[in-house]
């Protein structure tokens, strides 16, 4: 229950942040990736702001035994830099560049562009299901 409320609050803040920062505009995100063209550095400011706050959060996390509202931390333990990580990230970059969309903004943009964002999100789910079926 408490975990649900935190998820709802975190998701809402996240959605608001994506919307305010202009990241729900695929043409702007694509503009960041268009370094040889009319480059739009906005995304770098978004990442900078987010990383600034999160870096502080990690410092606080290091001093905590358990999270405030849950029994334990559930954090990624994998440390190996393997082929799947690099191949997956490279693939993600291709799709990100083609459409100007990554998962968060695509889902959030459903509220303003339901048809286009919907087509992307359904396709994204299909891609996740293909990965699941391929058992990689």
């Amino acid at each position: 229950m408490r975990e649900g409320l935190i998820s709802l609050a975190s998701g809402s803040l996240f959605g608001a942040g994506l919307a305010i920062s202009g990241m729900m505009d695929p043409s702007r995100v694509r503009g960041f990736l268009d370094i040889l063209g009319n480059w739009d550095p906005t995304l770098a400011f978004v990442m900078g702001g987010a990383i600034l706050v999160m870096a502080l959060a990690w410092l606080i996390q290091g001093r905590m035994i358990r999270p405030a509202m849950a029994g334990q931390f559930n954090l990624p333990q994998t440390r190996k830099i393997d082929r799947n990580l690099v191949m997956g990230a490279a693939m993600f970059g291709v799709g990100w560049g083609l459409a100007g969309l990554c998962p968060g903004p695509a889902i959030g943009a459903l509220v303003v562009e339901p048809v286009s964002a919907g087509i992307f999100v359904v396709s994204m789910i299909a891609g996740m299901a293909i990965h699941r079926a391929a058992k990689l």
């Binding site: 490279a90 993600f92 969309l101 286009s116 087509i119 293909i130």
Partner: peptide, 15 residues
């Protein structure tokens, strides 16, 4: 949108 979406979905899971 369709091709980009499929690649993003697959790639983010793989990576």
């Amino acid at each position: 949108l369709v091709i980009g979406g499929i690649i993003v979905g697959f790639g983010t899971r793989l990576g």
